[in-house]
């Protein structure tokens, strides 16, 4: 299928740009690790594991925001986005490519961050990991659209967290619930519902955000 070939090409382009320039992933990694260390000092002794899980989600969301803020910068700097929009492919492929690339960065950062969390704070079970993955998908899907919107504005660095955080609240509820609730399945269901609804909406509306 041509559509998926386009998506794959766009994702590969982003990953290759990152491999060459290395200005997003190392920043995300360093950020999430420093955040975890800060949390050790922010959590008083004996607050228990539940508080640590909550803070893990704060770390994940802000790491994702850090990655998303950089998401459209290469395109902005070189005026690539206008070219991509004019290219004869479906514009939603641009969104999907960017979402997959951002997701790859976020998952890569978590491959280091989650073992560090287990080492420093508390264990994570399979439900919690599934929650992390589902929430990653949701935040990347919504975030890459919001980042494209914010990139066109005057105050993009400030605007992006404002746009994304209210939208991320259900994700945090789902993620924390999956980590600490005995019935984690319901929270995974909520996350899946969120991912489905917002992915379809972002996919359908991306075209309107980038065309002049």
């Amino acid at each position: 299928m041509i559509y998926f070939a386009d998506v794959a090409a766009l994702t590969r382009k982003d990953l290759r740009v990152e491999l060459r320039a290395r200005d997003t992933l190392p920043a995300m990694l360093l950020f999430v690790l420093s955040t975890l260390v800060v949390f050790h000092f922010a959590l008083p002794e004996g607050t228990g594991d539940d508080a640590a899980y909550g803070l893990l989600w704060v770390a994940i969301v802000f790491t994702a925001l850090l990655g998303l803020a950089r998401a459209w910068v290469p395109e902005q700097e070189h005026g690539v986005l206008d070219g991509l929009v004019l290219a004869p492919s479906d514009r939603s492929a641009i969104w999907l490519g960017k979402t997959l690339a951002t997701l790859a960065f976020l998952v890569a950062a978590q491959v280091v961050a989650l073992p560090a969390f287990v080492l420093f704070f508390a264990p994570l079970d399979a439900t919690a990991l599934a929650g992390v993955l589902l929430a990653d998908i949701g935040i990347c899907a919504v975030g890459s659209l919001m980042a494209a919107m914010a990139a066109a504005s005057r105050s993009r660095e400030v605007l992006l967290p404002l746009l994304v955080l209210p939208l991320a609240i259900p994700l945090i509820v789902g993620g924390v619930g999956a980590a600490i609730s005995p019935e984690g399945g319901r929270y995974l269901l909520l996350l899946a519902l969120y991912d489905g609804a917002f992915a379809v909406l972002s996919w359908a509306s991306f075209e309107y955000v980038v065309t002049e």
């Binding site: 939208l167 509820v173 924390v176 909520l190 519902l193």
Partner: peptide, 18 residues
């Protein structure tokens, strides 16, 4: 604005679960 109306039911569900 469209994201908003999708957010309303999902947040409501999330807050109920939370």
């Amino acid at each position: 604005a469209l994201f908003g109306v999708v957010l309303i039911p999902i947040s409501f569900l999330a807050i109920r679960l939370a």
